[in-house]
Amino acid sequence: MSVNLTTVVVACVLIGTGTYLFLSRSLVRALMGFLLMGNGVNLLFIVASGPAGAPPIVGESDEPMVDPVPQALVLTAIVITLGMTAFVLALAHRARQLSGRDLVDDDTESARIHARAEADLLDSPSARDVTEQIAAGGELPESRHHGDTESDGEVGTTWRDGIPERGGGGRPTGGPGTGGGR
């Protein structure tokens, strides 16, 4: 089977650019990436369906018909992508309502445990102070269970600000848990 090179190249470009956008921290950009990838994959199905031909309606034409199955699959995939897009848009909107931006935040609990492990490793008094400080910060997320969603954006900020202060321990800040600060 010989394939249509243009379709393959377009599909590759769509999936490649989609993947790049998908890596973004911004939810809307990631969504755009998802859409591009989705369209690229749909084109891949068209490639998979083989050579072009008459519409797959029996009795309409004497020419060979195209394979109808991939078209049905693509239709289904498009509908599913639509539903997922709607959900992600709603999610991005909600994230913006809550924090004023649609960026993906770090997992603060991981950051806390990472900082505690480093503090144990260094075994310096100042590092211990930081651990306690973060542990005190650990009380904050619980307050979320009692309402007050407005302050949540602040909680994340406090933590991210709290961890860099550990610079007093003699180590540059960073690491997987804390490196995501912007």
């Binding site: 939810l27 994230a95 997992d107 979320r144």
Partner: peptide, 16 residues
């Protein structure tokens, strides 16, 4: 809530 939206974002993107 903010915490669930954060967790949900990670989950949604990975699943997609």
């Amino acid at each position: 809530t903010a915490e669930r939206v954060r967790a949900g974002t990670t989950y949604v993107l990975v699943s997609l």
